[in-house]
Each structure stands twice: as C-alpha cells, then as structure tokens.
Computed example of a mutant assay.
Amino acid sequence: MGTEQRGVALAKSLDDVKTISANILGNVLVTLQTGEKGRKVNKVLIAQDVYYPGETPTKEFYVSVLLDRAKGRNTIMYSTEGGMDIETVAHDTPHLIFKEEIDPKVGLRDFQCRKIGFNLGLSGEALKGMTKFIASLYKAYEATDSSMFEINPVLKTSDNKIIAVDSKVSLDGNALFRHPDLLAMRDVTEEDPTEVEAGEHNLNYVKLDGNVGCMVNGAGLAMATMDIIKLSGGEPANFLDVGGTANAARVEQAFRIILKDPKVKAILVNIFGGIVRCDRVAQGIVDAYKNMGSINVPIIIRLQGTNAVEAKKIIDESGLKVYSAIALQEAADLVKKVVG
C-alpha cells in the first residue's frame, strides 16, 4: 500500500478528478494531524475551484470560533495568514493573531463583526461580506453545539466574495442527542476501532500509550488512578470508566477491550463502592475472569467502599491469580512490583 502525502489536489478536468481520486482512495495519508502511521483514505471530497482569475488579487484568511475555558467565553480567533497551520503562525508571527471575546450575556454584536473585517484589512463589498460571514459562522457554531468551528482558509475572491474553502469542526459529543442529523454523519472508520467498540457497550474508553490498563468507575477516580500509576513508575494505557453498573458482563467487556492493547503489562481495577456494592463488583470480576478462560497479565484489584471487606474475601478465596489491595498506595506498590 502506498503512502499519499498530499491531502489536497487540484483537478483541471473530469479526467483529472478520476485520476487523482483513484490515486488517493485506499492509500494512506500521512500529515501532521494523522501522525506517522497516517490514515487510510476511504472517501474523497470533490469541491468547486473558487480560485478563479480576476483583476483584484485573492486573499486567504483564517477564522475560527472556540471556547476559551480559562475565561469561560466563546472566542473568535482570526488572522490575515490563512491557508497556513495556525500553530506556526502563532509561533512565528503572534502579532498577526487576533481574538474577539464574546460576552455570553449579549452574544456576538454587529460592531464586533465589523471590527474583525477591519482588522483583516477589508473594505467595501468584501467588508460587508466578511461581516455577514462572521455572524453566520458564530450562529452555526452555537446551533451545532460545537466546541470548535475552524474555517481555513476563508477566501476573498477576485470579485470580493467571501467563501469558506475548507473547514474543521469539533462537535460536543455530550450534545449530539440534540442533533440526530449530525450524528448520522458519523464515520467510525476515522475513529479508533477499540474506542468505537467500547462506545457500543456504553464504556467510556480512551486509548493512551502506556503499559498499565485501568478499569475504574467514575471519571475523577479514573484520573486519580492514572496519576497513581505514573507515580508508581508505570504509564497508563487507557482511560476506562465502567460507570455505576459494574456487573459481570460489563467487567468482562472492559477486560477484553483493555487486553486488545498489546502494550498492556498489567491491569489495575480501582472501584469505589458507592452506588454499586463492592462485593457485587468482586463477584462480577470473578465471573468475568473465569468466563474469559485465562488472562495473561497481572491484575491488581482495589475495591473500597460499601462491603469492601466482603469483596476482598471473595477475591482472595476465588483462586484467581490476582493481587488484592485495600489502600490506594498498596495498589500503587503492587503496580510497581508487577510492572518492574
């Protein structure tokens, strides 16, 4: 399989479209965004050429809307240096990056749209077009519950029209239930297959690059568990939150997903028994372990909370090759011991 380095190509005829598409489809595209492994190209977007000739030169801009979490406000970030990687522009020429904060009490105002156009050096019809473009972009950002809406480049054509040439949109997954039309556009071939499988079983899973698998209930506890793995000398291989229903079927599926990663040398199960009792989780772990036949990596199990003592007894008397812990530090020491 070949490696295609160019993600964008210019076609001058229908024959060019066919040839270029054939060369790209099925090949691996390697860019800064994909990393060294790249991504297999399954689809090609064919768009109209808007760089038509004219007396007035064309100009490319960068415009994006995103949430500034530090300030708790949506922010429009824009630059005259469109068509380039914005990180490079920010590093090499930070004075060419502009920001416009949006007050959530009043929303985007008309004067802010005009200010953006002025800062981009526009006037006349191009300024009017950009003002309307910014207002429409912000409306689209809010209406789709996006976390980031980037247009790069925004093109001023030779006849002073403002056109979105290319875009990148990040949607808030927690809001997709309000947008079934957007959810229907999901392409799972562009996602990590293990994360897709986890989602099908209602498991919150994110693959990382470490060697210690994590199975935890609750996002906060999962973050603390990853910290303790780091402090013990290991590296977390994943974030996995099984939620409040840690029954045998759910635990088994979580084990199977974690073990799909060949880098995993140990698994740390860290469950706090609040909504779900620890003894029920322990029995679920035992049943899942036996149902899977054998697990070839060490498992450290820490169950704390309601019926934690009973849970430890179930684990200790199960005959399984697992390590049982009560204190978090004890679990960390066991991770250090088995990972080495």
Results as ranks from 00 to 15, higher is better:
267 I>D: 05
69 R>I: 07
171 L>N: 02
296 N>A: 07
152 N>S: 01
212 V>F: 14
225 T>K: 12
82 G>T: 04
211 N>K: 12
2 G>W: 08
219 A>Q: 07
256 R>E: 10
67 L>F: 08
45 L>H: 06
333 D>H: 12
24 I>W: 00
274 G>M: 03
249 A>H: 06
217 N>Q: 07
151 I>G: 05
243 G>A: 03
78 Y>V: 03
81 E>T: 00
260 K>A: 04
144 T>N: 05
127 L>V: 00
271 I>A: 01
80 T>P: 06
182 L>F: 14
143 A>F: 13
47 A>R: 05
160 N>G: 02
74 N>C: 02
296 N>Q: 11
8 V>S: 05
166 D>I: 01
324 S>I: 09
331 A>S: 12
325 A>Q: 10
71 K>D: 09
313 K>R: 13
31 T>Q: 08
314 I>Y: 10
48 Q>C: 03
32 L>E: 09
111 F>Y: 15
275 I>M: 09
239 F>Q: 12
322 V>Q: 02
176 L>A: 07
42 N>F: 15
138 Y>N: 01
64 S>K: 02
118 F>Y: 04
71 K>Y: 10
240 L>K: 07
21 S>H: 03
318 S>D: 08
40 K>N: 07
13 S>Y: 14
276 V>M: 15
316 D>F: 11
4 E>H: 14
218 G>H: 09
56 T>W: 02
13 S>K: 09
259 L>M: 14
274 G>C: 03
177 F>A: 02
230 K>Y: 15
35 G>H: 13
57 P>D: 13
28 V>M: 08
292 M>Q: 13
302 R>W: 09
249 A>Y: 01
120 L>D: 06
92 D>N: 14
164 A>K: 04
52 Y>G: 08
202 N>W: 04
117 G>W: 05
81 E>C: 00
59 K>A: 11
200 E>W: 10
291 N>P: 00
114 R>E: 11
333 D>M: 11
222 A>Q: 03
52 Y>F: 15
25 L>D: 01
250 R>G: 00
251 V>T: 07
324 S>P: 10
36 E>G: 01
141 Y>E: 00
79 S>D: 08
147 S>V: 11
173 G>W: 07
57 P>M: 13
307 N>I: 03
292 M>F: 10
255 F>M: 12
325 A>M: 11
162 I>M: 11
263 K>H: 11
136 S>K: 14
228 I>K: 05
92 D>H: 13
45 L>W: 10
150 E>R: 00
323 Y>K: 06
84 M>W: 05
199 G>M: 05
223 M>H: 13
249 A>P: 00
187 D>L: 03
180 P>F: 07
310 E>K: 13
302 R>L: 06
329 Q>C: 01
31 T>N: 06
86 I>W: 08
324 S>N: 14
39 R>F: 08
